[in-house]
């Protein structure tokens, strides 16, 4: 039974507090995640010194490298060190002595271009297909979309990639099979983006179409949607004005969840197409047990995913809030 904040200043403070609390919780979650990453790399056999060693290095050399990289210090100390640099934007130094921020400066924007394009295309396609299916419940179009989306989601990215490569590149020769990196660290032409984006979009559209279709079906059985049909409103209007607004919270949550899967898929797809993104960086960093670099990648991906989830929560809150 709290008395309402009457003054403008108190209301503003209240609002800031309400936005800050979830952001704080997510930041804490990210710290826990990074700690888990540090521990996991430590538990893997081998370390950065051994994996970057040249053939024939003596044990003394190895120990010296280990000391140079700080691997002889306890794990928590290295973690605290790395976290300490974080507020200043310093993501540490990789096992090869380069700044992690410099290593990520080119690949991160490339991956963002890939993931954001795939994300937008996924949202548009799944809304379109989901609405199309929901407007024809039980009819052939609905069933075809239902089965096709299940099949698409069941396909792993590498199978989709191989299929796309075979059809669109090797047989028809329309698109380049491999991404060639230009002098500025970006793919040489935009056509090189098409195959990786499609390989990500197809499985994710399968998943999200099912989410959209299901959320719309739930709304279809609500009394106000049935009343709208009895009022003689055309089906497309009932769908867009009465069914879809109620389905938005469920759709936003489903779509936000798939950003995590998109990033995961990007690692596989980038490797397959030789796309210059953080996926390639991450794969080689894990092979080299390069903890600061892995943590840097996780940090960036985690921050992006957290932001998307926060946005989804805000959308959900705003649309649910309309009901009270």
């Amino acid at each position: 039974m709290s008395r309402p904040a009457d003054t403008g200043a108190r209301r503003a403070a209240h609002l800031a507090l309400r936005a800050a609390a979830p952001a704080g919780r997510r930041a804490l979650l990210l710290v826990v995640l990074l700690a888990a990453v540090f521990t996991a790399v430590e538990l893997l056999p081998g370390d950065a010194a051994g994996n970057s060693a040249e053939r024939g290095e003596s044990a003394a050399d190895l120990a010296a490298r280990r000391h140079l990289l700080g691997l002889d210090r306890p794990l928590w100390e290295r973690f605290a060190d790395w976290m300490g640099g974080l507020p200043t934007g310093d993501l540490g130094t990789s096992a090869h002595g380069q700044k992690v921020t410099a290593l990520l400066a080119d690949p991160l924007p490339n991956t963002l271009v890939l993931a954001v394009t795939a994300f937008l295309l996924t949202v548009a396609l799944s809304l379109l297909l989901g609405c199309w299916a929901a407007a024809r419940p039980g009819r052939p179009a609905d069933r075809v979309i239902g089965h096709a989306s299940t099949a698409a989601f069941a396909l792993p990215e590498f199978v989709v990639s191989a299929g796309l490569l075979l059809v669109l590149s090797l047989w028809t020769g329309w698109l380049p099979a491999v991404t060639v990196t230009g002098g500025d660290g970006r793919p040489a032409t935009w056509t090189m983006l098409v195959l990786p984006v499609l390989a990500l979009v197809i499985p994710q559209t399968g998943w999200n179409t099912r989410v959209v279709r299901g959320a719309l079906a739930d709304q279809a059985s609500t009394p106000h949607v049935q009343a709208a049909h009895l009022d003689g409103l055309p089906p497309h209007r009932v769908l867009l004005r009465h069914q879809l607004p109620g389905a938005v919270p469920a759709i936003a949550t489903g779509v936000a969840t798939s950003t995590g899967l998109l990033f995961g898929g990007a690692v596989v797809v980038e490797t397959l197409f030789n796309y210059p993104g953080i996926g390639t960086v991450l794969a080689s960093a894990v092979a080299a047990r390069d903890t600061p670099l892995i943590a840097g990648v996780v940090m960036c991906a985690g921050a992006v995913i957290s932001l998307v989830l926060l946005a989804a929560d805000l959308v959900r809150h705003a649309t649910l809030g309309a009901r009270t």
């Binding site: 609500t222 009394p223 106000h224 049935q226 009343a227 709208a228 009895l230 009022d231 003689g232 409103l233 004005r241 009465h242 607004p245 109620g246 649309t319 309309a322 009901r323």
Partner: peptide
């Protein structure tokens, strides 16, 4: 339904779009 015959159910609270 749209032009000639209008029906109002007994539960108008749930028949009106809450949004």
């Amino acid at each position: 339904r749209r032009t000639a015959v209008a029906y109002v159910g007994q539960d108008p609270g749930s028949a009106l779009n809450p949004r």
